[in-house]
Amino acid sequence: MKKLHVIGIIIIAVAIGVIFISLKNTSTYADFSEAISNPEKEYHVVGKLDKTQPQIYDPKINADQFMFNLIDNKGVSKQVVLHKSKPQDFEKSEQIVLIGKMEGNNFHANDILMKCPSKYNDGKPPMK
């Protein structure tokens, strides 16, 4: 057996290993009900801002805590504690992805991704 064949087999093994290990550990997109049923696991929850509920951000008390309500794709609204400062243009976001876990009745997120009007997306003209 050639050395290169051994190396080839090692490479294939590493590639397959990466796929399996990363799929096992990766978090998945979910809704609140799934996050509630499995509070240990980290989830990506996709949803929209619940504009009927108040948003609480008081940087004087804690600049790294922002609370609001998110409606997930199934229509469930839950209070979210984001452990970051309030993102700019939060209200303008079309879609929000939160990364975190369920704790008690709140979803504690340590990161947020917002789908905003992208800088490449010239999208719709301002309606007049």
């Binding site: 804690n62 790294d64 970051k84």
Partner: peptide, 18 residues
């Protein structure tokens, strides 16, 4: 001085200052 570490390792990242 407030530590968020009770919420787990991921949350112990106060980065902002007022």
């Amino acid at each position: 001085d407030k530590k968020l570490s009770s919420l787990g390792k991921d949350f112990d990242d106060r980065e902002s200052i007022l």
